Each structure stands twice: as C-alpha cells, then as structure tokens.
Computed example of a mutant assay.
Amino acid sequence: MSFSESAWEIFNQSINDYHLKDDVDTPINNSFQKNTLEWLLYAKNWIDTVQWHLEDIIRDENITPAEALKIKRRIDSSNQQRTDLVEFIDSWFLQKYENITPDYNAKINSETPAWAVDRLSILALKIYHMSLEANRDSASEEHRLNCTNKLNVLLEQKKDLSEAIDQLLFDIENGKIKMKVYKQMKMYNDENLNPVLYQNVKNDQTKS
C-alpha cells in the first residue's frame, strides 16, 4: 500500500469516527500509537473534521453574536493547532530522510510533504460531504446531479494529488528533491508579534 493510500484510509477512519456522534465537542479517540505517523495523520484529520463543522455552525444566520465570537475564537485556535501539527508531520519526514544525500542538481519542491498531506485531508472531507449531498433523498434531482458532477471532479483531484504526494516522497527518497522546511511563523496568535495583543498586554501592565 502506498503512503497516500494509507493516509486516505486513516483520514476516512477519522471522519467516520467523528460522524458516529457528529458533535464538535466529541473527544478524539485516536487508537494509533502516540507520535507515530499514523497517530499524527489521524489527529490532523480530526482537527480538520471538527473545524469543518465549526465553520458550518458559525454560518447559521440565527447564531447569537456572543456564540459566533466564541466559535470564531475556537476556529482560530484550531487553525493554530492544525499548523503546528502539519509542521510536526514535516519534522517526522525530515527525521526519516535525514540520511538522504540529495543529488547535486536536486530541486526544491514549492510544497512540503505535510502541506500536501494537509490538502489531502481536506479533500477527504470534501469528498465525504459531497457524496452525502449527491445522494441526499430530500434534495432535488438537479441538486444531486450537480453534486455528482462536483464529486467526480473531487475524485479526480484525489487521484492526481495522491500520485503527486507519492511521487514527491519517492523523489526525496532518491535524492531528486531536497527535503527542506520553513516554519509558518504565524503572527496573529502571538502576543509578542500581533500589535493588538501586545498593546493589550502593555495596557494591562500599566493599569496594574
């Protein structure tokens, strides 16, 4: 089984596990051994799945401003966790390939393995939910047909992305591409980098 096939199975296991209760407050039940690649992939998709449904909730026109702000803060935190976990997965790959000596003319890919995997995880969610819409009995035939056409495009994208990920890993293993990672360095959640946050800290210190 290729890496992309294994990752796809894990992503769908996470998605199916979530939908047993379909509740954003359901605790994660990651059965894989901690800090293995499988554990990381499951945890990554679980974050994506919960956030997918938080994004649905916040778009409810009847949501109160207070609840919307609460959900927005939760989405912000989820985005940071997602970024941290993607970088952790890249660190896993870095360690795996640390003894690989790239060819003298090896190229650098514009996307790291983990960020490509991030897109595959989101794609698994798109395919899951588009499939539901393509087969929803309460929807019109036109709606189901439209969603079926979109689903076919997503399935083709899944095939292409899976091949691209496996090829990227193959090229890294064979020295054709350098494994190089840059941290995202998100600034908006850091009270030392976000002017609004560090100004608030300064004001609180002044008051005290």
Rank of each mutant, 00 (worst) to 15 (best):
S2H: 06
S2Q: 10
F3E: 07
S4W: 01
S6T: 12
W8F: 05
S14R: 08
I15Y: 00
N16R: 15
N16C: 11
Y18H: 05
Y18K: 12
L20P: 04
D22Q: 08
V24K: 01
V24C: 05
T26M: 15
N30V: 07
N30E: 02
F32T: 02
F32V: 06
F32Y: 11
Q33H: 04
K34E: 08
T36A: 02
W39K: 05
W39N: 10
L41G: 01
Y42S: 07
Y42G: 07
A43S: 15
A43T: 09
N45Q: 09
T49W: 01
Q51S: 13
H53W: 10
I57D: 03
R59C: 03
R59Q: 14
E61K: 10
T64W: 01
T64V: 00
A66L: 04
E67W: 01
A68E: 10
A68P: 00
L69E: 09
K72G: 09
D76G: 13
N79Y: 11
N79V: 08
Q80S: 07
Q80V: 14
Q81T: 12
R82E: 06
D84S: 14
E87P: 04
I89V: 12
F93W: 09
F93A: 07
L94Y: 03
Q95N: 13
K96E: 08
Y97P: 09
Y97F: 14
Y97I: 02
E98V: 01
I100G: 06
I100F: 00
P102H: 02
D103S: 10
D103W: 00
A106G: 06
I108D: 15
S110G: 10
T112C: 04
P113T: 08
A114L: 10
W115T: 15
V117G: 04
D118G: 03
R119C: 05
L120R: 14
S121P: 12
S121Q: 08
S121H: 05
I122M: 14
L123E: 02
A124T: 07
Y128T: 13
Y128S: 12
H129G: 02
H129R: 15
H129W: 02
M130G: 00
M130F: 04
S131Y: 02
S131G: 15
E133H: 09
E133A: 13
D137G: 02
D137H: 09
S138T: 15
S138F: 00
A139F: 12
A139P: 00
S140A: 07
S140N: 11
S140G: 14
E141C: 02
E141Q: 11
E142W: 00
N146P: 00
N146Q: 08
N149H: 09
N149P: 00
L151I: 04
N152W: 00
V153G: 03
V153I: 09
V153Y: 06
L154M: 12
E156C: 12
E156F: 06
Q157M: 07
K159N: 13
D160Y: 11
L161H: 03
S162G: 13
S162P: 00
S162K: 06
I165V: 12
D166W: 03
Q167G: 03
Q167H: 05
L169A: 03
F170R: 09
I172C: 03
E173N: 14
N174G: 09
M179I: 13
M179L: 14
V181R: 12
Y182C: 02
K183G: 10
K183F: 12
M187S: 08
M187E: 11
Y188W: 13
D190R: 13
N192Q: 14
P195L: 03
P195T: 01
V196L: 11
N200V: 04
V201D: 05
K202R: 13
S208N: 11
